[in-house]
Simulated scan of single mutants.
Amino acid sequence: MLVMTNTKDHPTALPARVRTVVVGAGYAGLSAALSLHDDGIDTVILEGSDRVGGRVCSERRRDGVVVDHGGQWVGPTQKYLLALAERFDCPTFPTYNTGEHIERWPDGAQRRYTGAGPDDGPGMAEYLAAADRIDELARTVDLDDPTATPDIEKWDSETVHSYFERTVANEDARRRLALAVEGVWSIEPRDLSLFHLLFYVASAGRFDQLMETEGCAQERRFRDGAQSTALAVADHLGDRVHLDTAVRHVEQTPDGVRIETTRGTVLADSVVMALPPSATQRVTFTPPVPVSRTRWVERSPMGDVAKVHAVFDTPFWRADG
């Protein structure tokens, strides 16, 4: 397989000084750098790995089939990513959504269904009721200023697991809810705060928006892989993107910031840290970040997930519905 990358054989030398440094070349960092560049602000991106895209990584097989090792879908509420894809001519196509799903339980029971789940499935009614309650709570989240949400302290002090245990009596419904959380967040409900879940649901619109296909988060895929738009943005930014340049220390100075990397030092007026919270643990700061934030990061693990790709010559299962 060929990994989609824009690694350069001869990396461009780091500038001595720029106006803004963006740390991280995932979609957050690329979007930030692109916005700054569009506004005429002298900006560079520093990325520790040998590719852009962060948690999206596409590979093209020798037969031309593209597989996505990370995130792969895009839905209608992800308007900023869709706008980027349109701007850089990265086409999408609808996810195949014809036919029935199959649900199989550990006891061997099997049901075929369409939609969120089988109407007669174990715990299905209680699952749908719990999803409605989650949507109701999520509507009170302040997306413009999450810290202004009335119940943020209460919700952020409770795990999703304890919330399900407290509010959902049916064990099968709790199992369905846990599977939904694991599928979307790649993390156990016990490792996720209730407020994070509610903020995520509020951003999407509703709980089932994250789970389903038509009009929802799994509605479309990228023809050339989910990384294609990231690569297009990086190509547009050109030599402003510096790969294999891990940031080790950020120091606030009277004149701005000093960023020390594995390839040298860059001075800037400001820095944008576009990294997952856990990745910031590999960076030291002067002055140091608050102890409360350090403790929060230590208790906010990223999920682990294994993804298996099976490529067939034809989708033979469609003949059976």
Rank of each mutant, 00 (worst) to 15 (best):
133 R>C: 08
198 L>A: 05
271 V>N: 03
135 D>N: 13
107 D>E: 01
53 G>Y: 01
192 L>T: 10
267 L>F: 11
284 T>D: 01
115 G>T: 10
188 E>H: 11
177 L>G: 10
239 D>P: 05
111 R>L: 00
98 T>D: 11
207 F>P: 04
212 E>R: 14
103 E>A: 11
235 D>P: 10
312 F>M: 06
4 M>C: 14
269 D>W: 06
292 S>I: 06
61 R>C: 05
41 I>D: 02
171 E>R: 05
250 V>H: 07
263 R>G: 01
18 V>E: 03
110 Q>D: 00
47 E>R: 02
139 R>L: 05
251 E>R: 11
65 V>R: 12
50 D>Q: 08
197 L>E: 02
6 N>Y: 03
49 S>P: 07
308 V>Q: 04
318 R>L: 12
65 V>W: 12
207 F>V: 04
132 D>Y: 14
163 Y>G: 10
9 D>S: 14
10 H>V: 14
79 K>Y: 12
235 D>A: 14
36 L>G: 11
77 T>V: 14
140 T>E: 13
261 T>P: 03
3 V>W: 12
145 D>G: 13
208 D>W: 09
233 V>S: 06
151 D>F: 12
194 L>N: 03
277 P>K: 07
192 L>S: 07
207 F>Y: 12
30 L>E: 04
246 A>P: 02
18 V>M: 09
140 T>C: 07
182 E>F: 13
134 I>H: 04
317 W>Y: 14
179 L>N: 13
222 F>H: 00
177 L>S: 01
136 E>G: 10
183 G>C: 00
69 H>Q: 09
135 D>Q: 05
164 F>V: 02
267 L>C: 03
261 T>K: 02
58 S>Q: 09
126 E>G: 01
268 A>E: 05
176 R>T: 07
81 L>G: 15
221 R>D: 03
145 D>Y: 09
